[in-house]
Computed example of a mutant assay.
Amino acid sequence: MPYPKGHKMKVRKRIVESAAQAFRTNGIHDVSVPFIMKGAGLTHGGFYSHFDNKEQLVAEACRYAISDTIALLQEAADQEKQNPPINTVIDYYLSPYHRDKTEMGCILPALSGEISRSSEEVRQVFTHELERMMAFISNLAEIDTSKGSALLSTMVGSLVLARSVNDPELSDSLLSAGKQYAKELVMT
């Protein structure tokens, strides 16, 4: 009996979602194809009917994760009516919630260190997705892309450091300092 129309695309989407979540949490190199497939509720034998290799999946997961993050940030900005939208995004991005929910968080701080050692294909996709995220931040803040890239760099760097330390007070302080500087950057 044949699968219903769209079944293969739905399965592929589940695999990409599982990969994005796993990569956000554990990085690329520490995540195996069987682990990803298990997260999608599938056996690893079906992987190659959807992807040529893991690199192709990494690229697809980067696209998905950035789209997911942009949608999440846009939703947060749309819900807040009192603050400028960019301040709401900064507050969300540099919140303890976002710091602690790595599996649902932005992929930029999770993978930037590993991407530099990835294939040219993955680096090209990551570069495009980073540019897309910079454009989103720049447009939301109504600033030029140079300032937008500095703003995003501040946000990503603050989150990386806050996730890296084992001192909760220092981590919170890094988030707070990052928020303050990011908001000042928008105002100048």
Rank of each mutant, 00 (worst) to 15 (best):
L151C: 11
M1L: 14
A110R: 08
G46R: 14
L72W: 10
Y97P: 03
L170S: 07
A182I: 09
V89A: 12
R63K: 09
K38N: 12
E169I: 15
S176P: 03
Y64S: 07
I36N: 00
S67V: 00
T102K: 13
L73V: 05
N26Q: 14
G46Y: 07
K54C: 15
N26V: 14
R14W: 13
K10F: 14
Q74E: 15
V89I: 15
M37L: 14
E55K: 13
G46M: 12
P85S: 12
P109G: 10
Q124L: 14
K81G: 08
K54W: 11
F23H: 05
L140T: 08
Q79G: 10
G45L: 05
T102H: 03
G45W: 05
G178E: 05
I143R: 00
K179V: 14
H128L: 01
E80G: 06
Y93K: 01
V16T: 07
I90D: 00
V165I: 13
I15Q: 02
A20T: 08
I28D: 00
P85H: 09
G6E: 08
N53H: 11
K147Q: 14
L140P: 03
F51D: 01
P96K: 09
L94Q: 05
D172L: 04
D144H: 08
K101F: 01
S158D: 03
E103N: 11
R123Q: 15
P168W: 00
E55H: 10
Y97N: 06
V122S: 08
H29A: 09
L111P: 03
D52R: 13
D167K: 05
N83F: 14
R24E: 01
E60D: 10
Y3L: 14
G113R: 14
S176T: 06
K54M: 15
K147L: 11
T127M: 04
N166Q: 10
F47Q: 11
